[in-house]
Design a protein around this nucleic acid. Structure first.
Lengths: 112, 112
DNA sequence: AAATTGCAATACCATTTGGTTTCATAATTG
DNA sequence: CAATTATGAAACCAAATGGTATTGCAATTT
């Protein structure tokens, strides 16, 4: 069984508020990356990316493992459960609207 | 029929990053509230609460309707769909964890 | 051993954020 | 009409945020 770190989702919501950080999380879906590797995907200094990684770590969205002189950043999707849980406080409300209103249109738009 | 405002979820994520604003959304689940009514629930000035309401409006999380000299704030839970959709990009990954916890059930499904 | 590489830490900067106070205005009430 | 009420708007402020550049150190490579 997993330990349960985050009772309060503030640090996670805060981490998700920045588009660069959300992009980093998407990158880490496919594989773990060192700081330099993550930074290679952005038009900013490695130091700036490292700060973002720190915020993501504080939000429990990634874990960081030293490996030689590198720091391997690993996605921790479990933290997103806090977000998912919070959003679900509103499920009943929007169900009442959307299901009644237009699930068909919804599907169209979801295909993005 | 609803108009489709937000393609990009940045303003919504940004709005959710503040605990006061998340609290306001929870308040608005049960009923629409004027600015003063919302402010009555917090230990800060009405002006500060009004700023939060503006950010929530920019994130399409609430709508504001003038009614006499009041501004009625109404929850718009549909905006949370953008968040829900984004989080779902990671569903498969954290499924991979749950799978490890309950391989029996999983094997049945994997036979699909 | 020397050079290079990956990262940490710090100082610094401009902008944003979250709050305040004050003043003005529109709607309601006595 | 006068007083009150609900809000809007603006100026202001401290702290946080998102970025930079620089310096130093530990690990790797040659």
């Amino acid at each position: 069984m997993q330990t349960h770190q985050t009772i309060n989702p503030q640090s996670t919501f805060r981490a998700l508020a920045d588009p660069t950080r959300r992009e980093i999380l998407l990158l880490l879906r496919s594989k773990d990356l060192s700081i330099a590797e993550v930074a290679g995907n952005f038009d900013m200094t490695r130091a700036a990316v490292k700060k973002h990684l720190r915020v993501l770590q504080e939000g429990n969205l990634i874990s960081v493992t030293p490996q030689g002189r590198e720091r391997i950043n690993h996605l921790e999707p479990a933290a997103l459960k806090a977000v998912s849980d919070w959003v679900s406080f509103f499920d009943e409300l929007w169900d009442a609207r959307l299901t009644a209103l237009s699930s068909a249109i919804d599907k169209e738009w979801n295909s993005k």
